[in-house]
């Protein structure tokens, strides 16, 4: 393993930044899931595909942010 160019304090700040964004995206996904489930059980199927697309996009952003974990 190569030594990190950042100090531990700097790495911790990066992780806090990434964690903040990830938490916001996960909360959005949770809201999206409950809203979609409510609409789906209420017979509204039109919202299902766009909501799934949005949720998968959030997942993609989260996985992308994982690459920057130091």
């Amino acid at each position: 393993m190569r030594p990190s160019p950042q100090t531990r304090s700097q790495r911790l700040s990066i992780i806090y930044g990434i964690l903040s964004v990830v938490v916001i995206l996960v909360v959005m996904q949770l809201w999206l899931l409950t809203a979609t489930m409510n609409a789906f059980l209420g017979g509204n199927h039109n919202i299902v595909w766009p909501a799934a697309l949005a949720s998968v996009t959030c997942l993609g952003l989260n996985v992308g942010l994982l690459r920057y974990l130091v």
Binding site: V23, Q29, L32, M37, A52, C58, L59, L66
Partner: peptide
């Protein structure tokens, strides 16, 4: 942070399950 990304994956799977 890694665990939260795993949670994100679970929510996306739930969404696809509804589809």
């Amino acid at each position: 942070t890694k665990f939260m990304v795993l949670t994100s994956l679970a929510f996306a799977c739930g969404q696809l399950w509804i589809v």
